[in-house]
Design a binder for these strands. Structure first.
Lengths: 345, 345
DNA sequence: AAAGCCAGTGCCCAATCTCGG
DNA sequence: GCCGAGATTGGGCACTGGCTT
């Protein structure tokens, strides 16, 4: 009648026991790799398990062990490349560690939604919550509230009660800027991400620090919103700045917009202006010209998030150490041209 | 000692019963909104529940009801905008319907991984599986195998045993092409998505059909891989085609690459060539020029996936009807220019 | 050493019991 | 003493862990 009818009632541990001619907790022993089972008996049980296609019930197991082997994942904001990749790889890592992941995606990051979502996960008896949130507000919302389970945040800023894994944005930004300085650039502008983004703030910090150490001035950054559109807008403004010879853009998408605007203004990259992006999205290698950028290893970050969970849960390892991104040099950067340098000097 | 110690043992139904001075069964009645509970008693119980911050154990409940209120979600491939958005909105819709979602993201779509992942979810006792897969192979992998739970696929092609929700790609493509034809274009080329993508095939079909109905020839499509890079490559080739006055590109990212190539070749959009994309990604409005494209409502698609699940589970509704995308006219399309038209004519 | 027994996990459901009218 | 709304008891559900044999 309904679709459910063909769902045969699954075999239980008793069915297996009967078929193997043993008691049910001998089966349990085999299931849990406990000692004191004769190899022959074990074999019989395993045979019965296979024959019956028996699978232990997670619900029953969770009930008695008080462990669900389930993790909660909260991902906030629109599905951008970075967070999505991190979530994907975290998800795979969790699966490898034999944990199920209950995901809660949410567009908003207001404290009330964040909190109620986290509590929803706790009600599902997740053993830990992983939070992937670019926005500072999302992090703050979960800080300080008593959930009863540990929270591992993938975030660029520290918060008291939360465990944390992250990629070193500050170091990545320095890499980018030092590359430009090494090429001879002196006037290096910055198009940053939005002010509520923690990564953006760290990159601003790295940019300013690198400049400062070389005695170079840091002019006010132009604040974008990660979109190519905002890059384009700032690119137009920057095209009018005849002093600047290089731009460090806080992500690749905005870098695309900046390059567009520059091209429209008749400026060539890297002939007139050098550009460095951030992230190394798959498209970056196909930009015109291919973009020099800072590669973030979201794959590793996702795995680190899982490693962090295992560390906190005490099953394994220690908390992972933040990774430093790599600089990927392509052809959007070069030494500053003589004429613009002349104007500058 | 460890992080677990502060996790106070949760209150049980018996604690509530004791505090309220009733039996646990009366509490259960209150919990499940069953009749035969005196209002005063009900109030006492509810008070006790609140006071103890009692939450019923999902594991115990699942054990006895054989319902987990949990859904499995499989998302294959890289985290592109479309699938990611659909997954996000499905996730929200599921939450609204009080279902938890266990997600399995996977890069590969080979039959073995697909199958074992699906079985992993079944072992978690999910009540249904939702599959968001652009690749035909992912769909095929789950078709025909007996999982014991219904599968709702978000896919553009039909498969025997699978339920399905989708956006009408064929109709969307026709919209795009008819818009171009309406503007006066006669030679309309197509840059398609990869051949393993079901959406891509449907769009090719729609493009060819619209052309055919107007007695126009459909030249061989150029097959891309969804990336701007591949759009760029094909854009260079198309720039040499002096007959063509318009290009229907199978997604916005490739459209970006095509426009780049055209611009490099000295062709203006829409002056020399009109371009229509597909998807309406957030960036599309910021392209230069802003892209005319076919808007896909991934938000609604995600909700439809959940509606499909409810329909199949018999809790609600009927299977949702496929939605037809909208054409969003911006400034990358215009009537063909006289000189190119002259050459063509 | 190998395997069985019993109790307990938190909850739902059917059957049963308890009163006031 | 009969009725039934209102509340209780007992029997699973599928599994694990400590104690026994």
């Amino acid at each position: 009648m309904s679709d459910h009818d063909d769902r045969a009632r699954a075999a239980t541990i008793f069915d297996v026991a009967r078929l193997a001619g043993v008691s049910h907790q001998t089966v349990s022993r085999v299931l849990n790799d406990l000692p004191n089972v004769r190899p022959a008996t074990r074999a019989r049980v395993e045979q019965a398990i296979k024959q019956l296609r028996y699978v232990p019930s997670p619900a029953a197991r969770a009930l008695v062990t008080r462990r669900t082997r389930t993790l909660g994942l909260i991902v906030t904001g629109a599905p951008d490349y970075g967070p999505s990749s991190t979530a994907l790889h975290f998800n795979e890592a969790a699966r490898d560690a034999r944990y199920a992941v209950i995901t809660a995606s949410m567009l908003e990051t207001d404290a009330a939604s964040m909190r109620s979502t986290a509590e929803l996960l706790v009600r599902q008896n997740v053993e830990a919550i992983v939070l992937i949130a670019a926005q500072r507000a999302a992090l703050d919302a979960l800080d300080g509230i008593e959930l009863g389970v540990p929270v591992v945040a993938v975030a660029s800023e520290e918060r008291g009660a939360l465990h944390r894994v992250w990629l070193d944005q500050y170091a990545g930004a320095r890499l980018a800027v030092e590359h430009l300085i090494g090429l001879g650039h002196r006037e290096i502008r910055h198009v940053s991400g939005p002010t509520n983004a923690m990564d953006a703030a760290e990159r601003v910090r790295g940019w300013a620090a690198a400049l400062g150490e070389h005695g170079l001035a840091a002019r006010e950054p132009l604040v974008g919103d990660w979109s190519p559109g905002s890059g384009y807008v700032h690119g137009r403004a920057l095209a009018a700045d005849r002093d600047m010879t290089a731009i460090f853009v806080s992500n690749d998408q905005m870098a695309l917009g900046v390059m567009h605007a520059l091209a429209e203004a008749g400026l060539s990259v890297p002939g007139d202006v050098s550009i460095v992006g951030f992230d190394d999205i798959p498209e970056a290698a196909f930009f015109a010209p291919p973009l020099t950028t800072v590669r973030q290893d979201f794959d590793a970050l996702g795995r680190d998030a899982m490693a962090g969970v295992l560390a906190v849960l005490g099953d394994d390892d220690r908390m992972p150490v933040p990774r430093v991104p790599d600089l990927v040099v392509r052809t959007s950067t070069a030494a500053p041209s003589r004429d613009r340098a002349a104007v500058t000097g």
